[in-house]
Simulated assay, not measured.
Amino acid sequence: MVDGHEPPITAETDEDEAFDTGLMRKPLHEQVKERILRRIILGTWGEGFVLPPETELARQFGVSYGTIRRAMTDLTASGVIMRRRKTGTVVTGRTPHHSMSQFYQYYRLHTIEGRLVSSNTVLVDACHRGATLDEAERLELPVNAPVAYMLRLRIYEGRPVMFDRVTVPLSLAPDFPVTIEEMPTLVYKWLLERHGLRLAAVREKLVARLATEEDLRYLDLPLDVPRALLDIDEVSYDSMNRPLVAMRHAALTEDHCYITEIR
């Protein structure tokens, strides 16, 4: 997990980070790099933010200066941060939005200006049932095969801006929770932690359409005003190329957009 000379990172106690660090067994500088990158992606350190000096970062993360230096060099080479002579090390805003290592906890909804939106999740519905024809085709299952289903809203600044329909085959995760109270917010993390099912690939299809009355009700909008929605139809696959999760996100487009960045 580490280079043999330094202890594991213990300066931060965030559950998701502790989980990723313990499970992935990556070199220490990679763990530090991912933690810094996660802060940038989630907007804690936004575009233009001046990072603390490397000696201070080493103290915060509980690692050596050499480890921090190596992590910062990698982030600089990838364009995530840049060094300015008088200012210091600055976040560029060019974050790798489609990094698989970040997919476990991160939705790529942005403001029109390009700023990543950090939303809150509210579960609306959850159950175990038979797969619909559409779900069966997407997940390569027989019709009516048992699946776990959830519907959740994404709340930003006090109002819903996006909702997700999530379907998981119970053949891969028979103990997937059935109630709203037990449903995991981080589906991929739950599957990895409980069943060792690791996300390996994602296929997405984007379609623009008008919101239906049902959509408008979920988004708490007037039923007599047409609204455009962006549908993001997503199927993820595990390391054996089996369909792992089917998701269908529907997002409002007046104030938000979906950004794809490939490096």
Rank of each mutant, 00 (worst) to 15 (best):
W190V: 01
R85Q: 11
D20L: 11
D16S: 00
G46S: 11
R85M: 10
L186V: 02
V63G: 00
M240E: 15
R70A: 14
R39C: 12
H29T: 09
C127R: 11
L170N: 10
P96T: 12
L23G: 14
A228V: 05
G88N: 09
A11L: 15
R39F: 08
A126C: 06
R165N: 08
L192I: 06
P146R: 06
P53N: 06
C257Y: 06
V122P: 02
G158A: 12
H29A: 14
V63R: 09
R94D: 12
L221R: 03
E56M: 13
G43A: 04
R198Y: 04
L28G: 00
M247C: 07
A201N: 15
T121I: 12
R108T: 11
A145E: 05
V178H: 04
R129Y: 01
R227C: 08
T212A: 04
K26V: 13
Y106E: 15
R35S: 11
E261W: 05
V124G: 10
I155F: 14
S78C: 08
T132G: 15
T10E: 11
D220F: 05
C257P: 07
G4Y: 08
D134N: 11
S236R: 06
Y237C: 04
I36D: 05
L51D: 06
G130F: 00
G130D: 00
T111S: 12
A201W: 02
D175V: 02
P8I: 08
R115S: 09
V2D: 15
I68A: 04
T21W: 02
Q105A: 09
L75P: 10
T10I: 05
S64K: 05
Q102T: 13
H256T: 15
L186M: 11
L57W: 03
L192W: 01
I36Q: 01
T132L: 10
R209F: 08
V122G: 02
I112C: 01
L197Q: 10
P27Q: 11
T92F: 06
A18D: 10
Y258E: 06
E137R: 10
R129G: 00
L123G: 10
H249D: 09
L244T: 07
K86H: 11
E204G: 07
E56A: 10
F61I: 15
D238K: 01
T92E: 08
D125M: 00
D220T: 00
T111P: 02
H5P: 04
I68R: 00
H128M: 07
E214Q: 14
Y104E: 02
R242M: 09
A211I: 03
G22A: 14
L109I: 12
R209G: 03
Q105M: 01
I262L: 12
M150W: 09
L192D: 07
H249Y: 12
R159L: 14
P160R: 03
E6N: 08
F176Y: 14
A58H: 09
E193I: 01
V143Q: 07
A11Q: 12
R248F: 03
G66L: 03
I68K: 02
V90L: 00
A11S: 15
I232G: 12
L172N: 14
R165H: 10
A250L: 05
S171W: 05
H5V: 10
V202D: 03
Y106T: 15
M183W: 15
M24V: 14
R69T: 09
V168L: 07
